[in-house]
Structure formats: C-alpha cells, structure tokens
C-alpha cells in the first residue's frame, strides 16, 4: 500500500463524510460536515503538491528534494479562512437556534416548539 493511496482514500472518505453530513437536517451535523469538508480540502490541496517525506520546505543550500511550498502556503490560507468561516457558521447556527427555537436547517419546528414570529413567510 502506498502513502498516496492512503492520502487519497482519506481525502475521499472525509469528503464523503462531509457531503453526507452537510445533507443532514440539523445545523450541528451540517457544521460538522463543513468541518469535515475543510479537513478533506486541506488534505486535498496539500496533496496536489505531491507527497514527500522528511523534506520540509525550509531552504538550505544544496537541497534539491523539498516539499512543494506553494500548496502548503495555499493550505495555510485555506485553513485560516475556513477557520473563520466555521466559527461564523457555528455561531450563526447557535444564534438561529436561539432565535427560532429549532436547529433544523430549513426552520422546520420540532414537535413541542412553537414556531417563531418569522417575518419571511412567502
């Protein structure tokens, strides 16, 4: 078994989990799905720089084998951005729940909860 296969299959699995979870009805699951997708994407984006072991992109004279630094920089940016986004979506989910009393993504009220005074019934 190659390292590439492990990474690719892990990316695939995490993506699949992300897709499945984002398709669920509860905001919490969806948030986890988003988190899963961002793991998957970070790994994917990293993988397009090809895999290499024990050759971090720290410059030293004479070194010719090194991990592609660019995808790493991209992943770093992506991590930060997805961190901000995830944080926002978590809080948004929480806040929506507090406001509407349901943690269903489509605003479907749960049994026992009264629907909020929503203004957007069209």
């Amino acid at each position: 078994m190659s390292l590439e296969f492990l990474v690719a299959s892990a990316v695939g699995l995490m993506t699949a989990a992300g897709i499945y979870l984002t398709l669920r009805g509860r905001t919490f699951s969806v948030v986890l799905g988003i988190a899963m997708l961002s793991y998957a994407i970070n790994a994917f984006l990293f993988s397009v720089g090809r895999l290499i072991v024990n050759a971090p992109p720290i410059y030293a004279k004479g070194v010719t084998e090194y991990a592609d630094p660019l995808p790493q920089a991209l992943v770093l940016t992506a991590i930060v951005i997805s961190f901000g986004m995830t944080a926002l979506v978590v809080v948004l989910a929480l806040r929506t729940y507090l406001e509407t009393g349901t943690d269903h993504v489509n605003g479907t009220p749960d049994a026992g909860e009264t629907p909020s005074d929503s203004e957007g019934d069209v």
């Binding site: 590439e4 296969f5 990474v7 690719a8 299959s9 892990a10 990316v11 695939g12 699995l13 995490m14 993506t15 699949a16 989990a17 992300g18 897709i19 998957a40 790994a43 994917f44 993988s47 397009v48």
Partner: peptide
C-alpha cells in the same frame, strides 16, 4: 462525490 475527489487527488 468522495470517491471522485479521492480519485482526483490520486
């Protein structure tokens, strides 16, 4: 979908 992304990565 996951299979597709995994394959692309591969």
């Amino acid at each position: 979908g996951g299979g597709g992304v995994g394959w692309l990565s591969w």
